[in-house]
Design a protein around this nucleic acid. Sequence first.
DNA 1: TATGAATGAGATTTCATTCAT
DNA 2: AATGAATGAAATCTCATTCAT
Lengths: 218, 218, 218, 218
Amino acid sequence: MVEIQRSAQGSDERLRDAERTRAELLEIATEVFSEQGYSGARVDEIAERTRTTKRMIYYYFGGKEGLYLAVLEAAYRGIRETEQALRADDLAPVDALRRIAEMTFDHHHDHPAFIRIVSVENIHHGQHLGKVESLRDLGTPAASLLDDVLARGRGTGELRDDVDALDVHMLISSYCVFQVANSATFGFLFGRDMLAPDVRARHRRILGDIVVGWLTTS
Amino acid sequence: MVEIQRSAQGSDERLRDAERTRAELLEIATEVFSEQGYSGARVDEIAERTRTTKRMIYYYFGGKEGLYLAVLEAAYRGIRETEQALRADDLAPVDALRRIAEMTFDHHHDHPAFIRIVSVENIHHGQHLGKVESLRDLGTPAASLLDDVLARGRGTGELRDDVDALDVHMLISSYCVFQVANSATFGFLFGRDMLAPDVRARHRRILGDIVVGWLTTS
Amino acid sequence: MVEIQRSAQGSDERLRDAERTRAELLEIATEVFSEQGYSGARVDEIAERTRTTKRMIYYYFGGKEGLYLAVLEAAYRGIRETEQALRADDLAPVDALRRIAEMTFDHHHDHPAFIRIVSVENIHHGQHLGKVESLRDLGTPAASLLDDVLARGRGTGELRDDVDALDVHMLISSYCVFQVANSATFGFLFGRDMLAPDVRARHRRILGDIVVGWLTTS
Amino acid sequence: MVEIQRSAQGSDERLRDAERTRAELLEIATEVFSEQGYSGARVDEIAERTRTTKRMIYYYFGGKEGLYLAVLEAAYRGIRETEQALRADDLAPVDALRRIAEMTFDHHHDHPAFIRIVSVENIHHGQHLGKVESLRDLGTPAASLLDDVLARGRGTGELRDDVDALDVHMLISSYCVFQVANSATFGFLFGRDMLAPDVRARHRRILGDIVVGWLTTS
DNA sequence: TATGAATGAGATTTCATTCAT
DNA sequence: AATGAATGAAATCTCATTCAT
């Protein structure tokens, strides 16, 4: 019985190792793809920064593109989870808005790899995104949260009613994405490092001001 | 003398051809780099879409990177010229602001290749940008134009005084860049095509509203 | 005793399973090797089309080559059995000849996988055939049957005597093998599908005519 | 002027070299593919047996399959030329028939690589053949030559009229192809080396006898 | 008897670049 | 000013096989 138990554990361990191998590849790949882009990333480099070998990429993901798709999926799944965790029903509409803006801002700053992967995917015209079944209607959560807040605010007359959730989401997204995705060129051209803590704090506040200001204008 | 004249003409023609070859390579390269990224672009493809051969890329630009740097420079020179042409002294501060926002918006929509090149460059951490001498202080014009308007507006009390030109520029840029740079993923996830004429018109108006609204709040 | 009986049954079942696994591998392997050739066949594909796993190929056959050798042996054993079942003593020599030709013809048409395996083996210069001990003198039955018929026919003066059994066997074989082994290219080049029922019937008759005609010429 | 002439020669030489490189690759590839099959052939091996490098295979043929297609095309073009060179109008129908049979027989024996390539292609179900545009209606010459002879023979009553050119061509082809394509297994099983000169001569005569005998039977 | 994970060696293919004229 | 041929280095991918249980 000890025998059996041991071998059962062994099997579990192997399975856990398999999962770990897969996860490790995914993690490093996310890093490398986000740093070098799809074509710039090297399968060899990804493997080397791992405990396993290049061969495993093909074993688990079928190839470079498969790995990239998995990275894409994991990245988007990550943001979806964050969004779903974001609750704002307990706040007054105006506060909720600022809260959503700030949380989104923080999420972008804290997950630069994800933002960069999105940039990479856009360079490739989103051609891979469509191949990932599980990413079909991923947009909904973010929009519906804002929808609720806007609806509540419109009811009380606090928020204007000629703007929809997607308009707001786009404003927030564009502002937040830019911080991370364009920090290199913006920093170079204007000498302002958007990733520096004080600048970040300022921009965070400004975004809140802008969003609230815009939606509370009659 | 006939001899000489002929050979002079020949030389002129050759020079003109040379200039044309260079220009054609630059044009196609801008397209290809903006469509496929730096690593994704193929020297072979660029050459094939040209009337010349691959060898000329090495002849004129020294290599793939040299060509990319030239593309980068040309692209930024283009935007600088547009910005310098933008005049707003004849308008009241608030109108000038809206005007700047809308012109910038249009410029981005009308020059997607440039926006995409900037994305590409950011993917590569702006590592090439620094190598182009002529792009040193390119940021100034855009900022100084806004600076003037803000100064005028602050004087009359029309515009708030706790926001600087760079803050405004960043808001406008982020909003405009997003339209073009992220249209693929945004369109896929939310089903809104930011490049469609009606959506574009709506976003254009919204951007003006946001900028003006933000800066006229006390 | 119940214990023992149970374990005996268990063992039988296991053996039967083992036999079944082996047989299944062999069957699928025959198919795959005959469809893709030796080098073209993939161990992975064979395993996938089976209820077992790739590992079993190594367990039962030692490897890809061992599996191929087993396929080769089984295929040739099949034809030998067919040939041995072919009886012609009860027919007049001329009828027997036609009968042998037609039976052989049918056998080839009905066992394309075998014919294709022979082609594959010839592509590889018969290098594996020599390794299968049990295939040593496999040729004899076919030849000796013809030998008998020819001997009988020569005795009565019905059949010519300057042709030996192997000459006849080669004619029949070449004609029959071609039907199956070269149907793709012949069909492509001449637009005649040798596997179509009516063409097959015509060729069958023609073969009989040729063989009989040839051997009855003085 | 000497300058010019020299450089013209140089250019010619380069061109000739290019042609030579291509031709050499094609020649070695024909050998290797015919010896090892499509999947069994190694691009590396082909290159190594050449004065150039593996890279050139991709430069000239685009890849392994492109090279194989070129081999296929060259091989079939070779046989077509041989067939077109074969003239038989000056012979009496019966003699012409024997002549065609014997010439075809010799051609097969003298071009084993071609026969083997055809076998290889059949193993792959002729899937590549269809991709070579220039091989569309290649069959015609062989058939039309026989057609003429048969027509002449039927007119004089020397040859039977219920057999068409394709029937005859198939008989001849199958007999000849078998000699080369199946010599390994046939030799192994029956101990008769079909490629040995004396056996070859015997089979050559026999084929003539069979063809003539068949077609002159009323 | 059976199996999922792993792997090394080698195969094919790609790519920016240089050579020779 | 221009060019076709050539290329080395490296990238991606494949395949039969073995490990550990």
